[in-house]
Design a protein around this nucleic acid. Structure first.
Length: 598
RNA sequence: GGGCGCGUGGCCCAGCCUGGAUAGGGCACCGGGUUCCUAACCCGGCGGUCGAGGGUUCAAAUCCCUCCGCGCCCGCCA
């Protein structure tokens, strides 16, 4: 029987919650009736919410059968037979060792549409206040324009941040700017000389780019050649070492910070094209000036396990944290007393861990050992709170191999975006006569950048990928534009309906076709998908869901008429409105522009 | 050499954490669909036993072991 539990407090944002509760009630009763006394939690953990070929929810009874010494198929049919009819569950049947439940579309549609109507932009997520989270991503050194290999980091991090925010967390995104190392110093080194005094190798190789060039392109230009030049010019290396030291001691030339800021601004402009922006920037040098590095050094030096090396350098042996033997002894303070990258990174993370309950770093696989080292340090320092690392593999150059600026295998992100936008522009012009020029620009930019962002997002971070120009620029099938297109299609129907309120007077019992039933089911799935993404950081599933939803909406679109339908018109419009809202929410989560027309 | 990650139809991927019913998509290819809400779409077809081998289990793409291939890391660099 239906238990109309009086649940105080807000209703669950997940339409499945009340239905599952009812299903579990019934299941407990049916199981007991057949002599199986399983706890509700056990039954819940056994349920397969993806359903199966026979229904919406499946229960494999093997384990229950084993513990009650029954034959699985017999138990399955016994449970199905003992099932007491319940309003949310349309049918229960046994098939082999499985009990299959078909959920009432009317019930599911009611729960789902009422939530979409009530929550609107917030459908799919949860209400706060959740924990405070700091998500650090991208953090590329300000040495020149971003290439495609680096942007995977930003797309993963930005999407994770959007999802966390939707799930009620109070999120701050951070970019850690490395202004202390040799890399940034090389740029200062070369630009502090008048151009006519540059070594000829560098000057000829890095000719001034044409005027409209942004600062990241312009000031980053000589960087790879400086790097090459230093290899066989020891006197320049000595020069640079002095500069690095001066910067670390806080009296580097003002030009240093200026250049870093200019180049960074250029990089950020590129990221903004794919809707990646940051709440805060933490400059590595600030950790030296605000004393946090000193504090870390004091704490580490006070550890009984701290080792002093021959020349006075200090290290920790972290072998007991499972670090490989060859890299378990980690120096954290140089012989001259200065700090190292790890030390500053420890300081940075301690700071983040004090400010937030959840600290997430998005790191390339070359930082895997570094992440483990940090974790070991925190163990040694007795820190209980630890960061979460999302590790991703590089996007390799076309034939394989890392993207290299000097080798010419790097694909600049701006170049890729420009190409995508050009292609999108052709498509728009082909399909839409008489469109305003400004409108073409706007749509082409949204479609092109959306395609690129989706293309990178859809692949699991840990998967190595080789960059493929053709695939990155695809606008069909599993792509960003496909999702945008579906959103626009839905919007177009709503517009033509001339209505403004879609969730009044609809009747879910009219959703009788397969495509309507299927659409209701995908819509209902979003809250569960987002909980999974938050838990596992599998951001690719946002793209996967977006495609499933778009796919199902298009099937519905072709299968049943909306505006020209009779009695079903109002109800179908409600479904279209729900799909439109949900597609839009998912586009937001992916950082892809919503387009009302395309 | 050691550590970590990846290996699913011709190509690109999801599923692996928390093992369950004939392994899901997309691209490409073949055949259809537009007097009708946007054909960046839809319908149908072809095609894989999940790198190889062993193990655990009633049940393995999923867990464990060995091997092979590819990538990354193993600095008083960042």
């Amino acid at each position: 029987m239906a238990k109309s539990e009086s649940r105080p407090g807000p209703v669950s944002p997940d339409p499945w919650t009340p239905i599952l509760a009812e299903l579990l009630d019934g299941l407990g009763t049916a199981a007991r009736a057949t002599g199986v006394d399983a706890e509700r939690g056990v039954l819940e953990s056994l349920l397969d919410l993806e359903g199966g070929p026979q229904g919406d929810v499946a229960l494999p009874v093997h384990r229950l059968a084993a513990s009650s010494r029954r034959a699985a198929p017999t138990l399955a049919s016994d449970i199905a037979r003992a099932w007491v009819p319940s309003p949310s569950i349309e049918s229960v049947s046994a098939d082999g060792a499985f009990v299959n439940f078909r959920v009432s579309t009317v019930r599911l549609a009611t729960e789902t549409l009422s939530r979409i109507a009530a929550r609107g932009e917030r459908y799919g997520g949860q209400d706060g206040p959740g924990p405070k989270a700091i998500i650090e991503h991208t953090s590329a050194n300000p040495t020149g324009p971003l290439h495609v290999g680096r942007v995977r980091n930003g797309i993963i991090g930005d999407t994770a941040a959007r999802v966390a925010r939707a799930m009620g967390e109070s999120v701050t995104t951070q970019y850690y700017v490395d202004d202390l190392g040799r890399q940034a110093a090389m740029i200062t080194w070369i630009w502090s000389k008048p151009r006519d005094q540059w070594p000829t190798e560098i000057a000829t190789a890095s000719a001034e780019p044409p005027p409209p060039a942004r600062d990241d392109v312009r000031y980053g230009r000589p960087y790879p050649f400086v790097s090459a030049y230093l290899k066989d010019h020891p006197e320049a290396r000595a020069d640079l070492a002095q500069l690095v030291q001066a910067i670390e001691e806080g009296h580097g030339p003002p030009l240093h910070r200026e250049l870093a800021e200019k180049i960074l601004a250029g990089m950020l402009a590129t990221l903004a094209r794919i809707n990646i922006r940051f709440d805060t920037f933490v400059w590595e040098s600030s950790l030296l000036t605000d004393g946090s590095v000193d504090e870390v050094l004091r704490r580490l030096n006070g550890l009984p396990s701290s080792i002093t090396e021959a020349n006075g350098a200090r290290a920790l042996d972290l072998a007991r944290y499972g670090l490989p033997k060859e890299s378990s002894r980690v120096v954290y303070q140089r012989g001259d007393g200065t700090s190292l990258y790890v030390t500053r990174d420890i300081a940075y993370h301690l700071k983040k861990m004090r400010a937030a309950e959840r600290v997430v770093d998005v790191l390339g696989q070359d930082h895997r050992l570094h992440a483990r080292t940090l974790d070991a340090f925190f163990g040694e320092l007795g820190e209980e709170h630890r960061p979460t690392f999302i590790i991703y593999q590089d996007i390799l150059a076309h034939g394989g191999g890392r993207m290299s600026t000097r080798g010419g295998s790097a694909v600049w992100l701006d170049e890729l975006l420009d190409d995508a936008v050009r292609r999108a522009r052709r498509e728009v012009l082909d399909r839409w006569e008489g469109i305003e020029p400004a409108e073409v620009d706007r749509i082409a930019e949204a479609v092109g950048t959306g395609a690129v962002r989706f293309h990178i997002l859809r692949i699991a971070p840990e998967k190595p990928v080789a960059f493929d120009w053709e695939q990155a620029l695809s606008f069909e099938g599993r792509s960003g534009p496909f999702v945008q297109y579906s959103y626009a299609r839905a919007g177009s129907i709503l517009r033509k309906s001339q209505m403004s309120e879609f969730y009044e007077g609809y009747d879910p019992s009219l959703y009788t076709s397969d495509s309507e039933k299927a659409l209701v089911r995908v819509l209902a799935r979003l809250p569960r998908v987002l909980r999974g993404v938050l838990r596992t950081s599998h951001v690719q599933n946002v793209a996967g869901y977006a495609h499933d939803l778009a796919d199902e909406f298009n099937r519905f679109y072709h299968a049943v008429p909306v505006l020209s339908s009779g009695a079903e018109r109002t109800s179908r419009l409600a479904l279209v409105a729900a799909a439109h809202q949900t597609l839009g929410n998912v586009l937001d989560l992916m950082g892809i522009e919503r387009l009302e027309r395309m």
